[in-house]
């Protein structure tokens, strides 16, 4: 554990809880992509199956349980409790275009051919692109609510902070996992355009709207 990873995890946690609380408080999931949330639920499920097979620390286990619960809680709110507020007309990204290639890639580039390892690798590849339906939705509607922008910024910052963590780990403990590092870089690059808009608009008190 180092400061970059801790900040990354806290940023990730903040993003997930921010989204959950926003939907709960406003009684609405307008502007949120249910498809991205489905992908994140798949990501957490396939990655954290190791809750039952490999113990790392209390911290890791608790965080995994929180991420899983919050993710399924978000799905429950979006597709059941506040379903009428779900804006499915604008959530039109075809997620099979992400699910299938990520699955194929996890069989092609993987550290070891075991079920758990392929599932873990799949979760890494899918996470890298899971935000695309949400970004697509923002581009279709041409705007995002300020809290949705904060959510996206926190979620994007998490993997960027993990990149600093991997650089630190490379020098301090020879850690080098190219699968997660390259996927993490791709994931962070996808947010760059949004980061620019967030810094130039939202931080100056303006609503995030596209020209």
């Amino acid at each position: 554990m180092n400061i970059f990873r801790l900040c990354g995890d806290l940023s990730h946690l903040l993003a997930i809880l921010l989204l959950l609380v926003k939907i709960w408080k406003t009684r609405s999931c307008a502007g949120i992509s249910g498809k991205s949330q489905i992908l994140f639920a798949i990501v957490y499920t396939t990655r954290y199956l190791d809750l039952f097979t490999s113990f790392v620390s209390i911290y890791n286990s608790v965080m995994k349980i929180v991420f899983l619960s919050a993710s399924y809680g978000t799905l429950y709110l979006m597709f059941y409790k506040f379903k009428p507020t779900y804006d499915h007309n604008h959530d039109s990204f075809r997620i099979l275009y992400l699910i299938v290639p990520a699955l194929v890639l996890s069989f092609v580039i993987v550290h070891a051919y075991t079920l758990m390892e392929v599932l873990w690798t799949y979760s890494i590849y899918l996470e890298a692109v899971a935000i695309m339906p949400q970004l697509f939705m923002v581009s279709r509607t041409g705007e995002a609510e300020t809290i949705t922008s904060h959510y996206l910024f926190a979620l994007g910052s998490y993997r960027a902070l993990y990149i600093l963590n991997w650089i630190y780990r490379y020098y301090t403990e020879d850690f080098l996992d190219l699968i997660v590092i390259i996927a993490g870089i791709v994931q962070t690059i996808l947010y760059c355009d949004f980061f620019y808009l967030y810094i130039t608009k939202v931080l100056k008190g303006k609503r995030l709207s596209l020209p």
Binding site: R5, D9, D50, S54, V56, S57, F67, H111, W120, V180
Partner: peptide, 10 residues
């Protein structure tokens, strides 16, 4: 190797 398969991150 072995170390990499024990995923210790989230």
């Amino acid at each position: 190797g072995e170390a990499i398969l024990k995923h210790d991150e989230l």
